[in-house]
């Protein structure tokens, strides 16, 4: 279990460093950086490489935004296996819903609770 925490820290940290390098060295905006990372996660899952990373690093791989792309592909592939091409379209948000719905719900609650600063 301690190993899990250690590798979650290292892998999560490395993914963040990749993001930082994209922002600092290649001078991309945060929106560009995050979009590229999400696409990278999707591509990695397409090659079946992201799942082993999650097995290895746990939250170190599921918490960074790359996992969003991974989950999208995963849901789409799962449904695609059962229902063919239409399944690819309908299954996409099957697995991912948590992050987005949480962001929507908590975003709205946040807007109700808090006032803009400055």
């Amino acid at each position: 279990m301690m190993g899990m925490f250690f590798w979650a820290f290292v892998v999560g940290g490395i993914i963040c460093v990749i993001g930082q390098i994209m922002m600092d060295v290649f001078k991309l905006t945060p929106a560009h950086t995050l979009s590229i990372l999400v696409v990278a996660g999707a591509v990695l899952d397409g090659f079946g490489l992201y799942e082993p990373l999650i097995d290895f690093a746990g939250a170190g791989a599921t918490i960074p935004i790359t996992s969003f792309g991974n989950a999208l592909v995963h849901g789409a592939l799962q449904e695609g296996e059962q229902h063919g091409i239409i399944g690819v379209l309908t299954g996409m948000f099957e697995v991912t819903s948590a992050g987005i719905s949480a962001a929507i719900v908590f975003g709205f609650i946040g807007a109700l609770l808090f006032r803009p600063k400055g």
Binding site: W7, P52, D55
Partner: peptide
């Protein structure tokens, strides 16, 4: 074992 988790499947 942790280092083998890559090959879990």
């Amino acid at each position: 074992k942790h280092m083998e988790r890559f090959h879990k499947k």
